[in-house]
Simulated assay, not measured.
Amino acid sequence: MGGETEHLGVERVGATLVLTLNRPEAKNALSLPMLVGLYDGWLAADADDDIRSVVLTGAGGAFCAGMDLKALAGDGMGDQYRDRLKADPDLHWKAMLRHHRPRKPVIAAVEGHCVAGGTEILQGTDIRVAGESATFGLYEVRRGLFPIGGSTVRLARQIPRTHALEMLLTGRPYPAAEAARIGLIGHVVPDGTALAKALEIAEAVNANGPLAVEAVKASVYDTAAMTEADGLAHELEHGWPVFDTADAKEGARAFAEKRPAVFRRA
C-alpha cells in the first residue's frame, strides 16, 4: 500500500487511511524511511477519492519523540530513501506537514511521548486526540536548538500566545490534561483508546459530503491570515461551488426522505 516502509505502517479502515509511525524501540523518533513513507502516505490519501480522512498514530505506546539525527542520515536504510531526499530536499518538511497540507482531514491519535518533532507534526494535523498519559512539549531550547519544524510560526496561531511562548521558551513537558486546557489537543481519553476515538471521529467525518468537507477545511486554512472582510469574500470562492454539486442535491433529498445520504463526490 502506498507509503508503507519499514518505519511506517499503512492500513485502510473503511474510508480512513491509518498511518502508523513504527519505530517503537526509539519511541518512533523520525527516520528517513519514516519521513519518505509519511510524505507518500499524504499523497496517496489525497489521490484516492475513496479515502475521506487520515489518522496519524504511533506504534508501541508512543507517538513521536522527535528527530533521530543518526537515523535521518540514512545509514543502512537503502539508497532509495537517500535518493528521494536528494531529488526533493524539502521532502522531510512536507512529510512533517510543515510545507504540505493534505486535502483530506488529518486526525492525530497520540499515546505516550509526542515531543519536539512530534509536537511539530501535531501542529499540522486538524483534529487531535490523546491518551491521558501522553506528554507534549518542544524541548529544542533545552539543547540549544531551534524548533525549525514550524512551531515559532504556527503554535501562537493555534493556542494563546502566552501558552505558545511558555512552551517554546521553557522547553518543559506538558501532560495531556494541560495540553487540552490550553487548546493544543481536543480530546483526552483513557490510555490505549486514542486510536479508537480518532477512528470514531474519522467515521463521523467520512459520513459527510467529501467535497463539502474538503472545501470547509481549505477555507479555514486559506482565510486564517486574512482580515475578516477578506476572509468572508474568499469563503464564497470555496462555498458557492459546493452548492452546485450533485452531492449537495443528494444531501437535501436524503434529508427530505429521512434516509442517510449517499455521496458520490460529484
Score class of each variant (00 low, 15 high):
202 A>S: 14
211 L>R: 10
2 G>N: 11
253 R>Q: 15
219 S>T: 14
100 H>A: 00
206 N>L: 02
84 R>Y: 01
266 A>R: 07
56 L>R: 00
241 P>G: 07
234 H>S: 04
220 V>A: 11
12 R>K: 13
247 D>R: 12
167 M>C: 07
256 A>R: 08
140 E>C: 12
181 R>E: 15
264 R>N: 15
213 V>T: 15
184 L>K: 00
10 V>A: 15
237 E>Q: 06
151 S>A: 15
81 Y>W: 12
59 A>K: 09
74 G>E: 13
160 P>C: 11
81 Y>E: 08
131 G>I: 05
213 V>N: 07
144 G>I: 13
125 T>M: 15
33 P>E: 06
186 G>W: 09
193 T>D: 06
243 F>G: 14
62 A>R: 07
61 G>Y: 05
54 V>Y: 04
30 L>Q: 02
69 L>W: 01
81 Y>P: 01
122 L>E: 03
60 G>C: 10
145 L>T: 12
6 E>A: 12
107 I>D: 02
106 V>M: 04
53 S>L: 07
156 A>Q: 09
164 A>Y: 06
235 E>T: 15
81 Y>T: 05
212 A>H: 13
104 K>Q: 12
128 R>M: 11
223 T>Y: 02
213 V>H: 05
48 D>I: 12
96 M>A: 04
129 V>W: 01
174 Y>T: 14
34 M>R: 06
252 A>L: 15
195 L>S: 05
41 G>D: 02
103 R>H: 11
47 A>L: 11
70 K>P: 02
39 Y>S: 01
114 C>H: 04
31 S>Q: 03
251 G>F: 10
254 A>R: 02
43 L>Q: 10
198 A>I: 05
195 L>A: 12
257 E>V: 06
163 H>K: 07
65 A>P: 00
201 I>R: 03
262 V>C: 08
14 G>M: 08
158 Q>M: 13
165 L>C: 07
68 D>N: 15
245 T>L: 13
24 P>Q: 10
172 R>L: 14
94 K>P: 03
175 P>R: 04
109 A>G: 04
100 H>N: 00
245 T>Q: 08
37 G>E: 00
125 T>W: 03
197 K>P: 00
75 D>N: 13
147 P>Q: 07
175 P>C: 11
177 A>S: 14
233 A>P: 01
78 G>S: 05
9 G>H: 10
131 G>K: 07
51 I>Q: 10
217 K>D: 11
